[in-house]
Design a protein around this nucleic acid. Structure first.
Length: 444
RNA sequence: GGAGAGUUGGCCGAGUAGGUCGAAGGCGCUCGCCUGCUAAGCGAGUAUACUGGCUAAAACCGGUAUCGAGGGUUCGAAUCCCUCACUCUCCGCCA
């Protein structure tokens, strides 16, 4: 046995026993090919219609052949079973032996086609909602509203990394020494500020916004990553464990949405609101030159996430609520922000509609994303098999899933440091946070 | 790390000398009946996915699959064999 095999065996607890993911809505795609294609085009994304037609057609053809033969075999087998004298069945048994061989061959081809089809379907992004503005890039996003006035500091605003280093609460050099680039060590009041923000956000959402707090695993299996849409397409952005088929979560969206994977929920329980603090781990592949300084883009950062499972007819109302719940964090902290509606060219793979909250950063003279609130409609629900019944006996339907940061904690620290910096180099603590900082009013 | 026990439908729970078992029974639920209301009682029904036919679409009718997952033996597997995952108990180790 090679070393690698030994390892694999030792840690071989990768697959969950939850049933395989259900087929995506191949039927809907089959019947609405043209319109789906047109709407996906607004993302700047093409669908290989010819490939789909071929795979889908082949699959149905093979399925029909296989099922017809199985029906025959079942019938004959039942007759044999009814025989008192089994020796009378010899001839038919021989026939069925051949039929079974044929079925085996067809099923093997079928399996190949189904895997190809599944792989194809899993790489098709969500269809944007009709209300999502059509556009090519970030530049076409629409500012929905702006809250708060950037404060007139009366001096040249410093970027947070300078503030953090001079107050000795953020240590980028040692973070890099301990691990590497894009890892930061928080010290003293800095560490406490991060923790205070986490608790403040969790308390706000659970006590006032009616979310149930969850503390999920920070590693998930492949099925979970596929359920929310990170896999199969974005594996290169994820940290993968060696020896086990687990991934570090890039957001709490993954473990929290997958809480109900493969379940049928009660319609009367909707909407279900969950809120979770987790660290998030991202490789940030392809962003090498970007945001190299400071806390903005880290391989590990903390986030409080809001997740909703909603009735399809109610999901856009829920999206507004979720967005408002996230905004409330910045309102309480009295930090200016704006809300941006993402265009079709800028929304994520799984989203049908997304609003970003961008916080004002005086040190950088710009608004930066601090939260992303999306309605995935039934996209994740299909992949993850999350359904509900309207009524006790009704047919199960897919729920709509939503989530949003409420908020990204590291970036909130950035916003606090930069917006609350004082001429003397100290930083005031927002009033709402003081109870979480042991009454501390100022970091100096 | 070692030893053992389990995994069946919304839930509980039968079913292992392979055959008519998608699966007894109970609970729950739905509809109907009955009783002046309630309770009790009686009758019927009660999984999911894919797929063929019909259809504008459904309803509907038919087929296939599913008894943790995957594979094997067999004309035929919930039942036999193998691999894996998970749950529980005991021992060891450990925050």
């Amino acid at each position: 046995m090679t070393n690698e095999q030994g390892n694999a065996r030792k840690f071989n607890f990768g697959k969950s026993n939850v049933k395989a993911l259900p087929m995506l809505d191949a039927r809907y795609l089959r019947e609405n090919l043209e319109s789906v294609e047109a709407r996906l085009k607004t993302r700047g994304e093409g669908v290989d219609i010819a490939l789909f037609k071929e795979l889908d057609g082949r699959r149905r053809e093979l399925l029909l052949q296989s099922e017809t033969l199985k029906a025959l075999r079942n019938k004959v087998t039942e007759e044999i079973g009814r025989l008192k004298d089994k020796s009378q069945g010899q001839e038919r048994m021989a026939e069925m032996r051949e039929v079974s061989q044929k079925i085996k061959g067809i099923d093997e081809s079928l399996k190949v086609v189904e895997e190809e089809l599944q792989t194809f379907l899993l790489t098709v992004p969500n269809i944007p909602n009709e209300t999502t503005p059509v556009g090519k890039s970030e530049a076409d996003n629409v500012v929905v509203r702006t809250w708060g006035e950037p404060a007139a500091l009366g001096f040249e605003a410093k970027p947070h990394w300078e503030i953090g280093e001079s107050l000795n609460i953020l240590d980028f050099e040692r973070g890099a020494k301990i691990t590497g680039a894009r890892f930061t060590l928080y010290r003293g009041a800095g560490a406490k500020l991060e923790r205070a923000l986490i608790n403040f956000m969790l308390d706000l959402h659970t006590d006032e916004h009616n979310y149930i707090e969850m503390l999920p695993p920070f590693m998930v299996n492949r099925e979970s990553m596929t359920g929310t849409g990170q896999l199969p397409k974005f594996e290169e952005d994820l940290f993968h464990m060696e020896g086990v088929d687990f991934f570090l979560i890039p957001t709490a969206e993954v473990p929290v949405t997958n809480i109900h994977r493969g379940e049928i929920l009660k319609g009367s329980d909707l909407p279900i609101n969950y809120c979770a603090y987790t660290p998030c781990f991202r490789k940030e592949a392809g962003s090498y030159g970007k945001d190299t300084r400071g806390l903005i883009r880290q391989h590990q950062f903390n986030k409080v996430e809001l997740v909703k499972f909603a009735h399809p007819a109610d999901s856009y109302n829920q999206l507004q609520q979720l967005l408002g719940n996230a905004e409330e964090v910045l309102r309480r902290l009295k930090i200016p922000y704006r809300v941006v509606e993402l265009c079709t060219g800028d929304i994520g793979f799984s989203a049908a509609k997304t609003f970003d909250i961008e916080v004002w950063l005086p040190g950088q003279h710009c608004y930066r994303e601090i939260s992303s609130c999306s309605n995935f409609e039934d996209f994740q629900a299909r992949r993850a098999g999350i359904r509900f019944r309207q009524e006790e006996k009704a047919k199960p339907e897919f729920v709509h899933t939503l989530n949003g940061s409420g908020l990204a904690v590291g970036r909130t620290v950035v916003a606090v440091l930069e917006n609350y910096q004082q001429a003397d180099g100290s930083v005031l603590i927002p009033e709402a946070l003081r109870p979480y900082m042991g009454g501390l009013e100022r970091i100096s």
